[in-house]
Design a binder for these strands. Structure first.
Lengths: 320, 320
DNA sequence: CTGAAAGCGCTAACAA
DNA sequence: TTGTTAGCGCTTTCAG
């Protein structure tokens, strides 16, 4: 069933039907009535596809994440979806698995399906193939990047200052009198390097110029943290700063198992923190705020307003 | 830029261009060449919107979840997306928050945007407004339901036998010599009731007809589990069976805190199980398989094949 | 093998 | 206030 059926039923032209559906005014209350009746009677539902073809807007946005199973991405995607729902948009979710190729494929698909805008969450750091691609892409369709970084024109960035977050945590620990901080890096994204840098900076500022030597690189997940702990505690260490709650959970497991007198801190302030014993202090990277900002920025662009090129959000410590 | 531009550049008609793009054959290698050159040169990307309008397929599927931040839904959504990606489909993710209204709104939106099919994950049990709605809906667009249940015609169901899962766990515990099992129900979905029933059944079969008296109802989350534990351990209890890993984590926290000689088991076999001390035995409800089956069913329908009305997947115990 | 032309279902000038 | 008509960008008969 289409708009012609409704027009016929109502005894008016399709233009009039279109007008009442889109509340464009210039319709007599009489016609209005007739059309509304027909609408009801036929239980008509307009094709947004056809509509999009002419108005050049699908009211659909794309969201690229690396892995939606990661609570961090899930939280971001959740907020983005809720916020856009309020504004009448739907969300296409795309999991890149961290592959640049897939990222590009998805971006192409979104363009072909005429997504109104795209939000990319988390990136391997600048310079990848996808970044080159984005230079062209962002001129055609609005892109906002969450917690990524590149000098790409036309791309808007919303970032949580992860580096600062780790700095804050380190300063707290040092103030607590910890002498031997260690950092675990579990990823190779832009954000992961920022955090690492925060660790090094904080130590340097407090008279430990060799922070880099107190860093262990490992993979993601609880087990990786556990394995890293094995190595770390072979030398003196009374505080392990982690770039992820999950990693911290692994370290904590080791600490508990061998009754090691050291403290461990996480990052993300996920629900894991409360679930563990003892509860985990963590850096709250404020996913909610970050996601909301990203939506606001994209929404502004879609509404023809201008938006900040770069939005920086400051994390905060949650001590337990 | 559109297909006309390509046609002009190649010096052929749009029909020919369309033919080569869609590999419909009946094109001389000469024309083929010309078109391909033009395609390259213009860097042409066809509008899938316009295409969808005529072929009546968007190659987009909708997925309704209650809350993508829940690791269970995240895992399902992840697999669905990956599997459909392979098949050339994109996924629209919709979070209902458990609201029937929102569910209906989303279903309508998906229909208007002409999603080729819909997968609904998790349901409050049959009889809601949305179920009525689905009766009509499913006739227009293919729907497969994951872990929900209703007597809705045309809707396909893929379910993990959660009830059996809890039964298995109870039997294991009883075999271990546990005398006082207790169950914690933390939700009011169809699945939650199934699990509960599994507990009651298992106990009954082993000579405890009053299983219902050993059930505590609570909310979701670690804290809810902790609170529930307070009550539970006021009477004899040496094993707490939980309907969620999260709840189990809360109970475990209490058990550890007060050194209570009881065991606790979870459900979902999430990564939490490994992170906790001691690690948590859990029912693996095989999200991956469930999601894959759902995709296979929907894909079959979309390909014009027939598919099972109901697919039942048996969970398994993961003992730690 | 190729192209003209008629849709797909809608919006938006433009006339009336 | 209304209706006619020309697109939007593509696929697909149907002739040739």
């Amino acid at each position: 069933m289409n708009i012609y059926d409704v027009a016929r039923e109502a005894g008016v032209s399709i233009a009039t039907v279109s007008r009442v559906i889109n509340e464009k005014g210039n319709v007599s209350s009489k016609s209005m009535q007739k059309v509304n009746d027909a609408l009801k009677k036929l239980n008509y539902s307009p094709s947004l596809l056809a509509r999009a073809l002419t108005v050049k807007s699908t009211h659909t946005v794309g969201v690229l994440t690396i892995d939606i199973r990661d609570p961090y991405y899930a939280a971001i995607a959740y907020t983005i979806e809720q916020e856009f729902y309020k504004r009448g948009y739907n969300m296409m979710l795309c999991n890149t698995g961290g592959s640049e190729e897939k990222k590009i494929e998805y971006l192409n698909a979104l363009a072909q399906k005429q997504a109104d805008g795209v939000i990319i969450v988390g990136s391997s750091f600048g310079g990848g193939r996808a970044d080159d691609f984005l230079k062209e892409y962002a001129q055609k369709i609005p892109v906002v990047y969450i917690n990524g970084y590149s000098e790409i024109k036309d791309v808007h960035f919303v970032i949580c200052d992860d580096r600062r977050g780790i700095e804050l945590m380190c300063e707290h620990l040092l103030k607590q009198g910890k002498k031997h901080l260690h950092y675990i890096q579990d990823d190779i994204t832009f954000s992961a390097y920022q955090k690492r840098q925060g660790f090094v900076d904080a130590l340097k500022r407090h008279g430990f110029p060799d922070g880099n030597k107190s860093i262990t690189e490992t993979g993601a997940g609880v087990n990786a943290g556990y394995e890293a702990a094995k190595k770390i505690f072979q030398t003196p260490c009374d505080a392990v700063v982690c770039g992820e709650d999950l990693t911290a959970a692994g370290v904590l497991k080791y600490i508990n198992e061998f009754s090691i007198p050291a403290v461990v801190t996480g990052f993300n302030n996920s629900y894991l923190c409360e679930a563990l014993m003892p509860p985990l202090s963590s850096v709250d990277n404020r996913v909610g705020e970050v996601a909301c900002s990203a939506v606001e920025v994209l929404d502004a662009i879609l509404s023809g307003k201008t938006a900040a090129e770069k939005t920086l959000i400051t994390p905060r410590l949650v001590l337990r």
